[in-house]
């Protein structure tokens, strides 16, 4: 861990200003991912801006009938919120499928979106990794790739995004609210928040330097039968091989996002439109451009089968 300086800030604007002053800084909230990465020298910020004191820990109704989730709402609290449980069941299910109770108590909504890949080559600083050290190459390609992306990857990076929550946020069409260092605010649709790796895999999200997430907003409830199915090697405390977030309406329409298959939660309008045609119609569209490896080709039939099971359950 590189020595670093540390400050606490009292408002989002202060957070953004502090970030503007120190381009070598990172925000720290729950720290459940950042501290691990700092210990391994994968992240080496010279300065930490502690945002835990900000009053961003509320979940409030929006005038549009949705919910505005403060950036610092802990995963445990978000999963347990009665409105979330009632109207956004896929989100509660996804949250509870992730990490462990202890981690969820600490991890925040914004931090969850910003967690970094679990690619083992990203985690080993002896290995080339374009995400960790731009331009150094990708050791995962041609290596052990059972966990890696099957779609949307590039020659520079085949990592996946590890979050469960983000997959549910994607299927719910959440919006990310931010403030920039100069104080300007903006909203980013979740679909545009996470990026595909392309030739700049070190850039995980649409956030600009120093830009700070203040909230994540859910649109008004869409109803339907809401599911999150996480498939993994052990029954708890493991990252998804494949996960399925799905909302199925009584009329047979619905939406589907997949986790564990790409650099971001994987959803397509064309695939949603095919949901009445069954799982294979959906995954055929989601995986039209898939390029799996020998180690992870199983994710394609696995996602289809998991979705098939979810749809069967949704339709009773």
């Amino acid at each position: 861990m590189k020595p670093f300086t540390y400050e606490r800030v009292g408002s989002p604007a202060e957070a953004a200003e502090a970030a503007a002053r120190r381009p070598d800084a990172r925000f720290i909230a729950g720290g459940t991912n950042l501290l691990d990465l700092m210990k391994l020298q994968i992240e080496a910020p010279a300065h930490l801006i502690d945002v835990n004191g900000l009053a961003l820990d509320k979940i409030e109704a929006t005038p549009e009938g949705g919910l505005r989730i403060g950036a610092l709402v802990r995963n445990t609290d978000l999963a347990a919120d009665p409105r979330v449980r009632r109207d956004y069941g896929v989100l509660t299910r996804a949250l509870l499928a992730g990490a462990s109770g202890q981690l969820r108590n600490r991890a925040t909504t914004a931090g969850n979106l910003l967690q970094r890949t679990r690619c083992p080559y990203f985690y080993d600083t002896n290995m080339a990794c374009n995400k960790r050290r731009p331009g150094s190459g990708c050791s995962a390609i041609g290596g052990v790739t059972r966990q890696h992306a099957v779609v949307g990857a590039s020659d520079a990076c085949i990592a996946t995004h590890p979050s469960d929550m983000a997959v549910a946020m994607r299927v719910l069409d959440a919006t990310v609210e931010t403030v920039k260092p100069q104080g300007a605010t903006r909203t980013v649709p979740i679909a545009e928040f996470h990026r595909l790796p392309g030739d700049t895999p070190h850039v995980d999200s649409a956030l600009e330097a120093g830009e700070f997430i203040t909230a994540v907003t859910l649109p008004k409830p869409v109803g339907g039968s809401q599911h999150y199915r996480k498939v993994r090697d052990r029954a708890s405390y493991a990252f998804a091989l494949v996960s399925v977030a799905a909302i199925v309406q009584p009329d047979g329409s619905g939406r589907v996002a997949l986790g564990g298959v790409a650099h971001k939660p994987w959803r397509m309008e064309a695939a949603d439109a095919a949901i009445a045609g069954g799982a294979s119609a959906v995954t055929a569209r989601l995986f039209a451009e898939a390029k799996p490896t020998e180690h992870n080709a199983f994710k394609l039939p696995l996602a289809e089968r998991a979705l098939s099971s979810v749809l069967a359950e949704a339709r009773g």
């Binding site: 083992p120 080559y121 985690y123 080993d124 290596g143 052990v144 052990r234 029954a235 708890s236």
Partner: peptide, 15 residues
């Protein structure tokens, strides 16, 4: 490659 306890999975209580 999987040289930590996130990568090398051993049974948890739920298993």
């Amino acid at each position: 490659v999987n040289h930590d306890l996130a990568g090398y999975e051993v049974p948890v209580h739920a298993d």
